[in-house]
């Protein structure tokens, strides 16, 4: 048994310590908004916040997390899609298939937390998620929109 704090709730999970956090979130916590894309920290579809920092949950194992660490998934970013990033995403109709978008939004929210007014350069360096539908330009525009509130 391991104890985790996800989206403000404490949950006990029964999984091997080597299980990636991604699969604990999806299969034990039942939160499927966090996606599997590659499993090897390449695509960012699995991005969550751990103590405020964007992390690729496929490459974090269960036994490396303590109960005190605050994990936030896309479901916990806001109760009602009211986070500035979600609002900007809606206004610019960013998603296409949408599969990468949880990870994109979590990465963008972490970036804005760190740098409230990111430059193009910041966005290029920090948003390294893959989107096969090619929403990159709207992602960039929406991050900028969210940054001016």
């Amino acid at each position: 048994m391991a104890r985790l704090t996800i989206n403000g709730k404490t949950i006990d999970v029964d999984a091997d310590g080597g299980t990636p956090l991604l699969w604990v979130i999806r299969e034990q916590a039942g939160l499927t908004g966090t996606k599997y894309g590659c499993g090897v920290a390449q695509c960012g579809a699995c991005t969550v916040h751990i103590d405020g920092a964007a992390m690729r949950s496929c490459s974090v194992t269960l036994d490396s997390i303590t109960p005190e660490q605050k994990i936030v998934t896309i479901e916990g970013l806001s109760n009602d899609s009211s986070h500035p990033v979600q609002k900007a995403w809606l206004a610019l109709d960013v998603p296409q298939c949408g599969y990468c978008q949880s990870g994109m939004i979590m990465a963008a929210a972490a970036l804005l937390q760190q740098k409230p007014k990111p430059t193009d350069e910041d966005i290029s360096t920090e948003i390294t998620n893959i989107c096969r539908c090619g929403t990159y330009n709207r992602v960039r525009a929406a991050i900028k929109q969210a940054s001016i509130g």
């Binding site: 939160l31 908004g33 896309i74 979600q86 995403w89 809606l90 998603p95 949408g98």
Partner: peptide, 9 residues
Amino acid sequence: DTADKLNGK
């Protein structure tokens, strides 16, 4: 179909 793609739903 955008709204549910923003919150994991």
